[in-house]
């Protein structure tokens, strides 16, 4: 968790400078941080639990058998659907992708799965709609699905 340490160091330095310059502003900033944290916490806990459930019910060998070397176009579709369920942070996605490849999943299928896992989320669509409005939220998710499919296509052509 070196990245965490770097973030903590940067945050502490700025927080220190801010505190020396203006105590009142710093307090307002921290209250704002706390407010944002409180707002994402319910969704965060629910999503984390959802991912935990999904990862223990769908074992890597099960997923790999669905999107194996011979799964072809259908495998791409399955990957897109599974990947679009929830938004998962990249530090979980890449190790998961690696495990899947080791278990026999095909690279283009894993590529689309990883890409959609990081950028498309039906579970969080409700939250996203509240923030950006319905039209923008749908358009953003659709554009990410298109991006993921094109990315998988390139990987398919170039790397298999």
């Amino acid at each position: 968790m070196i990245s965490g340490m770097v973030l903590y160091t940067i945050a502490s330095i700025y927080l220190g400078i801010s505190f020396i310059k203006d105590k009142h502003k710093t307090k307002t900033a921290l209250l704002k941080s706390w407010d944002m944290f409180q707002k994402v916490l319910p969704d965060l806990l629910a999503i984390m639990l959802f991912i935990g459930l999904a990862l223990s019910l769908l074992t890597p060998s099960l997923i790999s058998s669905i999107i194996g070397e011979n799964s072809g176009f259908l495998g791409i579709i399955y990957s897109t659907i599974i990947g679009s369920i929830a938004l998962i942070p990249s530090f979980i996605v890449f190790p998961l992708g690696q495990t899947l490849v080791q278990n026999g999943a095909a690279l283009p299928q894993v590529a689309v799965l990883m890409s959609t896992l990081m950028s498309v989320g039906l579970v969080t669509l409700n939250m996203e709609q509240k923030i950006f409005g319905k039209s923008f939220a749908y358009a953003r998710n659709i554009s990410s699905i298109i991006m993921s499919l094109l990315f998988a296509l390139i990987i398919w052509v170039v790397m298999t």
Partner: peptide
Amino acid sequence: TVQLTGKSILDMLFLLPPIFILVGLLDQ
């Protein structure tokens, strides 16, 4: 499930505070 969820929640709780502090400071 409990192990996986617990670990990812701890990871998040560790990573989020500095990010939100920086965003709060940026806002001010």
